[in-house]
């Protein structure tokens, strides 16, 4: 279990997270939804220990992984944990891969850094190939030697997923992984994440501003607004009986967002 309890993060006197409490379980999908600026990314970064140095985690905050407290852990121990136990996929597939490293090389780097024993070069390549195939990347042999800019956004996000899951973490944090993609590609990515979750019993934390995506996908949904979790419950609960006015507005805003997406996708299909 990954338990976030009373997490409060401040920049100077500005509270960007205010008493956030969430629980993610292995094999389940926790959806976090909220409009932009509501603190979703900040929550993910706090879990990964990637907050910028000017951010302060307030007294009384707690993030526990299977009962082990992560806040205040020295960098060395944290590094070991986040590589092997929690991985993260970022929103922008353009910037989350190193533009100067070949795809295969980046995945190999992931394996190397995770401190696994590497018996041989061919073993490395085999492992990477396996991960690329699992992520359903078309023509993996070819992509192996390519640079990120030669891949489409959807393909890059598949590479990111392969990279995040190559060492079989217990939890995968996905920060709006499909926001930069068109609708059809988005569907494929969601399916992929779901399949990997069931196959490896991974816990997924799926961040989005698009509530609709979580329908039929998430087990639990947390609604965030201005750094607070304002509502939490099953997907049905949130959709059918939203308690908060804010949640109702999120549901109501779906059609026009969908429309905008379609227009954008039609213009920039690749």
């Amino acid at each position: 279990m990954l338990e976030i309890d009373n997490l409060t993060v401040e920049f100077g006197t500005k509270k960007v997270l205010d008493g956030v409490s969430l629980t993610a379980e292995k094999g389940k999908v926790l959806g976090i939804v909220g409009e932009s600026g509501s603190g979703k990314t900040m929550t993910a970064l706090a879990v990964m220990g990637l907050l910028s140095p000017d951010a302060r985690v307030a007294e009384g905050s707690s993030i526990q992984l299977d009962g082990k407290e992560l806040i205040g852990l020295p960098e060395k121990k944290l590094a070991a944990i986040r590589g092997n136990d929690i991985a993260m996929i970022f929103q922008e597939p353009m910037t989350s891969l190193n533009p100067t490293m070949r795809i295969g090389r980046q995945l190999e780097e992931a394996l190397r850094l995770h401190g696994q024993k590497i018996p041989s070069k061919s073993w490395l390549r085999e492992k990477v190939m396996e991960a690329l195939k699992e992520a359903c990347l078309p023509e993996p042999e070819k992509q192996y030697d390519r640079y990120p800019h030669e891949l489409s956004g959807g393909m890059r996000q598949r590479v990111m997923i392969a990279m995040g899951t190559i060492c079989r973490p217990d939890y995968l944090l996905c920060d709006e992984p499909t926001t930069a993609l068109d609708v059809t590609t988005e569907k494929g990515i969601l399916e992929l994440i779901n399949r990997i979750r069931t196959e490896h019993n991974m816990g997924i934390i799926f961040i989005t501003h698009d509530l609709k995506l979580l329908r039929g996908f998430a087990d639990k949904v947390a609604v965030m607004c201005k750094g607070k979790v304002v509502e939490q419950g099953s997907v049905e609960q949130i959709f059918n009986a939203p308690v908060e006015e804010y949640t109702r507005r999120l549901i109501a805003s779906i059609p026009d967002r969908q429309h905008r997406r379609n227009v954008k996708a039609a213009g920039a299909e690749k």
Partner: peptide, 14 residues
């Protein structure tokens, strides 16, 4: 230093 791929490398323990 704040690009996602650098964060990503750090996440992997680089």
């Amino acid at each position: 230093k704040n690009r996602d791929f650098v964060k990503s490398a750090r996440l992997m323990g680089a």
